[in-house]
Design a protein around this nucleic acid. Sequence first.
DNA 1: CGAGATTTAGGACACTTGTCCTATTTTGTC
DNA 2: GACAAAATAGGACAAGTGTCCTAAATCTCG
Lengths: 195, 195
Amino acid sequence: MPASGTRDNIVTEADRLFYEQGFEHTSFQHVADAVGISRGNFYYHFKTKDEILDAVIERRLSDRQEMLGVWEMEGETPHQRIASFVRILIMNEAKIRQFGCPVGSLFLELSKLDHAGEDGARRLFDLFRTWLRQQFEAMGCGKDADDLAMHLLARSQGVATLANAYPAETFLEREVQQMLAWLDAVAAQADILTI
Amino acid sequence: MPASGTRDNIVTEADRLFYEQGFEHTSFQHVADAVGISRGNFYYHFKTKDEILDAVIERRLSDRQEMLGVWEMEGETPHQRIASFVRILIMNEAKIRQFGCPVGSLFLELSKLDHAGEDGARRLFDLFRTWLRQQFEAMGCGKDADDLAMHLLARSQGVATLANAYPAETFLEREVQQMLAWLDAVAAQADILTI
DNA sequence: CGAGATTTAGGACACTTGTCCTATTTTGTC
DNA sequence: GACAAAATAGGACAAGTGTCCTAAATCTCG
């Protein structure tokens, strides 16, 4: 695993281009130009387009996993960690307004292509779903934890989609506040049940 | 406007293929094969791919507008009409599980392509947004009507996205019930304010 | 320095794409 | 039945695609 800088650069640029322009619309040439290498060199590192896609998905998975790991170690409460998740929408506001959610848009595209990578893209959803479920469980939501996780995932997806469609509006901030309020309500309800 | 059957067939098949496989991934050849005509005949009806896209968007717009019109004429209350909107998710459950939301997925794709048709696709969102706003206004939600419309649109988008990612689960029905309950709460709140 | 492995460049290949042109067939009307 | 218009078929065209090959350049290490 020499991790030649070039390979990493390819994954980085492919990651960005797949997000900004979509997987199918991004060609070998696009990525090669972005990295500043020739198509021939490209082929040395990745034999097929699917190999790049796999590498991009792995990159996204490990990026997100690291982010969740940091939140775990910062010693916050589950409630605060879920709030951090919701606030991703604000942290990445500019990009989301331009290109939507990287997870949702990649999955949607691969799903329409009947592409094998669809399963890889779903793993990105799984990562957040499982993590959210664990946080809700730690909050004392017991058997509802997975439903709550799915609910929050769906809300986030919807907000990202509409923020992309109407990028000039204050809608995103408003919805984030509503989700945080919803989270407080869920936490309060869980406290009552636990007492 | 002779409305030769062939032209209508082209729009119908293109509409379906754009939904199922995406706009970019669908070629002239795909549509021609689906309709059962030659590429040459195709060119007689549509000079460019963008012309087909425009026609498909117009078709989707008029289809949805008609649907909303029917709900208006059935003499239901605004509350019941909005509930009908929410239940689209259940009516089209099978397709949504397979291909997601036709409005959201088309917009997302065109947005990534920086395609001029993006504006056309946004008009589909606008159609529902405006209609929902009017219903909420009629329910007495006054200045919140547009926010509520956007909220419900976002929720629906999110549910469609996750139902597409996890097609085998009961998530969709559960979320629809929650949206209907939310709608009841909004209505009750509006009633209090109106009294 | 110099030999061997790694990395890069440049182009070939068959295929598909959107677009466009020109014949041929079908249709509708006197 | 004849003729103009509408509709259809089939293929040409340049451009771009993913894939693959080979020769050159660069790096590594004795």
